[in-house]
Computed example of a mutant assay.
Amino acid sequence: MTTPPYNSQPLTPHTAPQGPAATYPAGSPQSPYGYGQPAQAPMPGCRVCGAHPAEGFTVRAHQGLLVVMRFEKLDGPFCRTCGRAVIRQMTTRTLLLGWWSPLSLVAITPFTLLWNLVAHRKFSKLPASTPAPGRQSLPEGTPVHRRPVAYVALIPAAWAVWAITGLITHAG
C-alpha cells in the first residue's frame, strides 16, 4: 500500500471480477473506473414556455450609433415557436438599427444577420411542441421579410453603394 501525497488515507488495491462476463451495475464501487457512467441530466425545456424539445442556441441583435455600438444576445434553450419569435424580433431590430456606424455597416451587422440565419435554421428543424402547463409560447408574428420596418436596411445599403461608386468613378 502507498500513501498519496495529498491524502492521509492509504490507497488500496482494487479487486474486480475478471473475464468477459464481468458486469458492473451503475454506481458500483467494484467497476474498474470506480463508478458507473454518470447519468445524463435531462434536457432543459424552452426558457420561455418550458416545451420540449428545445435547442440551446444564442440569438443576437446589434445596434450601431456612429461611433458607439450596442450588442444584445439572448441565450437558449428555445423551442421551435419561441426561438423563431425571438429571432424575428431581434433580426428586425438589427435590420432597423444595425447599420448606422461604419464598422457595423461593413462587418458586424452582416455577421449578426448570418448568425441569426443559422439559429433560424436550427429552430426550424425542431418539431412543433406544446408549452408546459400554465405557460404560453411567444407569438411568432409575421416573417421578417413581411415587416416594413425591416426594409429600412435598404437606406444604408443604397448609401454604401452610392459612396463606393462615387469613390471608384472619381478616383482617377
Score class of each variant (00 low, 15 high):
residue 172 G to F: 11
residue 95 L to R: 09
residue 100 W to A: 03
residue 11 L to G: 08
residue 99 W to P: 03
residue 69 M to Y: 08
residue 132 A to R: 11
residue 2 T to L: 10
residue 6 Y to C: 10
residue 85 A to Q: 00
residue 53 P to Y: 02
residue 92 T to E: 10
residue 116 N to V: 01
residue 65 L to V: 14
residue 12 T to H: 12
residue 6 Y to K: 11
residue 78 F to I: 01
residue 6 Y to R: 12
residue 44 P to E: 08
residue 90 M to N: 02
residue 163 A to V: 15
residue 118 V to M: 02
residue 50 G to P: 05
residue 92 T to M: 07
residue 123 F to M: 01
residue 10 P to M: 13
residue 77 P to F: 00
residue 13 P to A: 12
residue 11 L to T: 14
residue 160 A to M: 13
residue 100 W to F: 14
residue 132 A to V: 00
residue 148 P to A: 13
residue 65 L to A: 14
residue 91 T to V: 06
residue 96 L to M: 13
residue 4 P to Q: 10
residue 47 R to F: 04
residue 91 T to G: 02
residue 136 Q to A: 13
residue 171 A to L: 10
residue 83 G to F: 01
residue 54 A to W: 00
residue 78 F to T: 02
residue 74 L to T: 11
residue 117 L to E: 15
residue 83 G to A: 01
residue 53 P to L: 03
residue 110 P to C: 05
residue 33 Y to R: 07
residue 20 P to R: 09
residue 147 R to C: 05
residue 138 L to T: 02
residue 154 L to T: 04
residue 108 I to R: 08
residue 49 C to F: 02
residue 124 S to A: 15
residue 86 V to Y: 00
residue 141 G to L: 03
residue 33 Y to S: 09
residue 116 N to C: 06
residue 73 K to Q: 15
residue 105 L to P: 03
residue 59 V to N: 04
residue 52 H to Y: 06
residue 50 G to A: 06
residue 12 T to N: 12
residue 107 A to W: 11
residue 148 P to V: 10
residue 34 G to H: 09
residue 62 H to Q: 13
residue 38 P to A: 11
residue 23 T to E: 15
residue 114 L to M: 14
residue 5 P to G: 07
residue 35 Y to T: 15
residue 14 H to K: 15
residue 160 A to H: 02
residue 93 R to W: 13
residue 97 L to T: 12
residue 60 R to S: 12
residue 161 V to I: 15
residue 143 P to L: 03
residue 31 S to C: 13
residue 110 P to G: 04
residue 101 S to K: 08
residue 56 G to Q: 14
residue 167 L to M: 11
residue 73 K to R: 14
residue 122 K to W: 02
residue 12 T to F: 10
residue 99 W to K: 04
residue 41 A to W: 04
residue 167 L to K: 03
residue 60 R to Y: 13
residue 86 V to T: 03
residue 142 T to A: 12
residue 67 V to I: 12
residue 10 P to Q: 15
residue 104 S to I: 03
residue 65 L to N: 15
residue 86 V to M: 05
residue 47 R to Q: 12
residue 108 I to N: 01
residue 10 P to A: 15
residue 115 W to P: 00
residue 123 F to S: 04
residue 81 T to I: 02
residue 125 K to H: 06
residue 77 P to T: 04
residue 71 F to K: 14
residue 137 S to P: 09
residue 43 M to N: 07
residue 112 T to E: 04
residue 97 L to M: 09
residue 99 W to S: 06
residue 90 M to C: 00
residue 98 G to C: 09
residue 27 G to L: 09
residue 121 R to S: 05
residue 101 S to P: 07
residue 130 T to W: 01
